[in-house]
Design a protein around this nucleic acid. Sequence first.
DNA 1: GTAGCATTCAAACAAACGTTTAACTGAATC
DNA 2: GATTCAGTTAAACGTTTGTTTGAATGCTAC
Lengths: 246, 246
Amino acid sequence: MKQTQTEARAIRAVPPRGATTTKTRILDAAESLFMEHGFEATSLRQITALAEVNLAAVSYHFGSKEELFESVLTRRLDPMNRERIALLTRFEREDASDVLSCERILTAMFIPALELARDRERGGQNFLRLLGRAYADPAPFIRRFLSEQYAVMIARFKAAFGRALPNLPKKELSWRLHFVMGALSYTLAGTDALKLIAALSPRDAGNDEILLHRLAPFLVAGLKAPLPDLSEFDGGGGSPRQAGGS
Amino acid sequence: MKQTQTEARAIRAVPPRGATTTKTRILDAAESLFMEHGFEATSLRQITALAEVNLAAVSYHFGSKEELFESVLTRRLDPMNRERIALLTRFEREDASDVLSCERILTAMFIPALELARDRERGGQNFLRLLGRAYADPAPFIRRFLSEQYAVMIARFKAAFGRALPNLPKKELSWRLHFVMGALSYTLAGTDALKLIAALSPRDAGNDEILLHRLAPFLVAGLKAPLPDLSEFDGGGGSPRQAGGS
DNA sequence: GTAGCATTCAAACAAACGTTTAACTGAATC
DNA sequence: GATTCAGTTAAACGTTTGTTTGAATGCTAC
């Protein structure tokens, strides 16, 4: 039990030994530290110190630092995206009309993320911030991994949005989904969002539901925005009309 | 002229020696590499090799790696934000009505960014991506630096948006500006945006104007979205009504 | 021409990095 | 009770990191 690691007992953010396996202890510690400092700035020695396991355990259980990072993401991302697709399918089956509204589709995207955020015991809070960070990371292996993980889900939701917004050209829809993912990931990454919550309404602190419920109307309106008039951008403007359907 | 640096001549992305000063050569190389790999993943040896200057020159001219990073950001960010405020002030003076439209205010935000992106010779393209990345970076010194740099500009624009959207509570406006900055920075960071451009319309590749002209209507609609109904989120929804003014 | 100054240079610094090694544990299998 | 094997351990591997050093350089001023 003598821990001769590098140093610095580190602040206990992981349950005591014995109650958990080495593998999950590493995943939890890595999730927390990757979120806080990013992939490159987090060392395996910090991770194993926080997890109170041996340094070599990472190589043994995961192979490398990159594979550890992918495991951290997969553990939560895979079930979440699966749940998103399942929820969307259920909505489509249950709904009376044959096309879902944008609000409903966005709901299918948000609910699984909310469940994860609420699941504080399993560190979901940390994970969403980590995910938001990963979106902005230029490391090739991260980008490759994310686009693989998201490909199926994004295609599925793009089709649903396409039906909800029949007047919106496919090209335009791709852009707007890009913007949606941008606002979403930036909000989830939220080093600033947390400060915003605290500053605006201290009692809401840590309540991700309210955050996402504010984001949804913003995004729905953006998705339904009138088509861009590329000819006169900086000419200023009249008030926009609705373009998308429903 | 004998370059005994670490190795790897590196791909020439910086003008030949002699034509530029050591200081700007370092800034250019750092801008390019920080953008591509992030702050932590970029070493001073990579930077000085690309710039074809001595390793110690960084310490001599900038003091440390962190100070170099801040210098890279300041060089372009400071003039850009200054220009944004100047443009907004000019719009307010020129405009017939006493309140600017959201479109016009957003234009004052975008134009200086566009000018920077267009100014390819001075590496503006690279810089915007670097800036988008920095937004998502959790490193304390980066966050501190950015919020200091942006404080004045954001406050100025928030006031303008407040006048443009008189029916929108201040609290709600803070949130929506947060989402706006999110979509904007994610788009600018754009590892994916570049792929999107190439995939959707190859002839537009590298044309940031079109990108931002698509983003503007999306954001304006979001800003004007109806107030969120926090009581029944996942109940699905009727079609939204305009909430903001103008 | 020599003093002063800013700049550049090769070399070295200690520290930290991801990964590997070989010895060692403890329970399950024969 | 010997064998096996997944798991853990301390220690070391060779690199690479940001930063510092002290000598050399080139220029301006006296």
